[in-house]
């Protein structure tokens, strides 16, 4: 499905951004454009990030710490 209608970005394209290391909505926007217009898809991009980072963040090579760090901070 198209998560971002304004910039015509699909869910799988956003997942690819996240897999490639984007760790915040702004980074996803920079990488593929999603979320850069009206902003109404940003919650959904955030949930995709949370989902990605919720499980097994201990093994995640990225430094952001994922959902648990955001909840704590």
């Amino acid at each position: 499905m198209y998560v971002c209608i304004c910039r015509v970005v699909t869910q799988s394209r956003i997942r690819a951004s996240i897999d490639a290391g984007a760790s915040s909505v702004d980074e996803v926007t920079l990488e593929c454009g999603a979320g850069g217009d009206c902003g109404s898809c940003r919650d959904e991009i955030q949930s995709m990030l949370d989902e990605h980072c919720g499980a097994g963040c201990d093994h995640c090579p990225r430094a952001h710490g994922g959902a648990s760090a955001r909840a704590a901070g």
Partner: peptide, 8 residues
């Protein structure tokens, strides 16, 4: 308006 669901 809530998120419009647009499928592929």
């Amino acid at each position: 308006i809530a998120k419009v669901g647009a499928a592929e």
